[in-house]
Design a protein around this nucleic acid. Sequence first.
DNA 1: CTCTGTTATTCTCATACTGAGACTATCTCA
DNA 2: TGAGATAGTCTCAGTATGAGAATAACAGAG
Lengths: 244, 244
Amino acid sequence: MDEREYLAAYDPRAYPAIAVTVDVVALTIIGGVLHVLLVERGEPPFLGRWALPGGFIRPGEDLDEAAARELAEETGMTDRVHIEQLASYGSPGRDPRMRVVSISYLAFAPDLPDPQAGSDATDAAWYGVDRLPKLAFDHERILGHALERARAKLEYTPLATAFVGPMFTISELRGVYEAVWGAPLHAGNFHRKVLSVPGFVESTGETTESGGARGGPRAKLYRAGDARLLHPALLRPEREEEIR
Amino acid sequence: MDEREYLAAYDPRAYPAIAVTVDVVALTIIGGVLHVLLVERGEPPFLGRWALPGGFIRPGEDLDEAAARELAEETGMTDRVHIEQLASYGSPGRDPRMRVVSISYLAFAPDLPDPQAGSDATDAAWYGVDRLPKLAFDHERILGHALERARAKLEYTPLATAFVGPMFTISELRGVYEAVWGAPLHAGNFHRKVLSVPGFVESTGETTESGGARGGPRAKLYRAGDARLLHPALLRPEREEEIR
DNA sequence: CTCTGTTATTCTCATACTGAGACTATCTCA
DNA sequence: TGAGATAGTCTCAGTATGAGAATAACAGAG
């Protein structure tokens, strides 16, 4: 065993090949509902099954670059996309072909360009997170982790502004929180909170052209502020069940 | 390019081999100061330089298992060690030998078994986080991320209890926070807070055998409670600089 | 044994933050 | 023109936090 360790340290190529992939959990909001980008696999394994977009990293390519490339291949989006690393998954057997270590990424997009199927997918679509098909590999687990991370990040970072355009109303911002957290928020308290957190949003002095679709006065327009962290944080409503 | 993608999807072995390693940031508290476990490299590259303990994953071994194994090889610790995945690093060139993707892990240990040098290290030691030597690879960056994660985790999880024994006093717990955060805390307020957060600690009914080394009454002993999250969180003192 | 310095624990008090509810003005749509 | 919805403010009570202080128990020096 020591001999084996010794050899392995010098020449990891003595071990069976390992593939490294990135999988992207791309989130956007459509019609007030959180949606995730999925692709339909065009080849085995899991042919025809929906999966997170992703693929092998290329030589000379950083992990973040690979994730951005994979996302761009399916959506064409490169600008205005926030992307960050999530976690890695490497259980033996998670891919039946060979040992695959996958690094998951979380991406947030403000608008919703119609997705395009990439080279190894037959279709691509946005799915509401409450109406998901069965996913390939361990992608359901990855997606679950990604959603929890996204929900937590909204609490203490201004990430929600990445889901809306460069100018937005407080209500639009509240819509983001409600979509990601899946629960309605108190409009008045949310308004007070957003304006009281230093650097979260800053006023543009402008207002919307007209009132909301279903009535109401014109709303003031804001842009993202310069805060990197929200302090004090904007916490989710009580979630007793997750504490114990 | 499309042809290349196609081939790559079918046979990633067509690409140059990639090695996958785990690197462990093991933290403990010695004399009230946060320490990290480092090993002195016994082989190139970076021969003689200090580095985070780590190594290549083995066939059939899950990532978490690999991290636990690497930690155990250097410390002999297996019980009472909290270990969790942190982030992955895969920049081309971060290891001069070949393409290496490294998955970092964070580990917390309550006591401090004297470290043992593993097979590919000539020495191993606990270093105070304020007195670090120059590290190999991009391990300084990894360590920086790990420390920030550890500091953040203390805020909203009962992780601090992983640094102390099965029974502990509130002051010992405060010592953990002060060591990790690197700042003194208000004893009275800390005490009130710890007892008011549901499920953080629970009373054992016992007290210490004697007072503290420098005087003071016997302290009540507590054990970790059943909370997985601290609510409301125990926040760090203001850190204005990190917000913007 | 007594005195001094430390520490554990509890309190007070002022301030900040939060949830719930209400009120007013403005706008869309029927 | 009226009904319904929304933006933006306010009030009020309850909770949480920071700072400081008070009390009591204990170790160690003399």
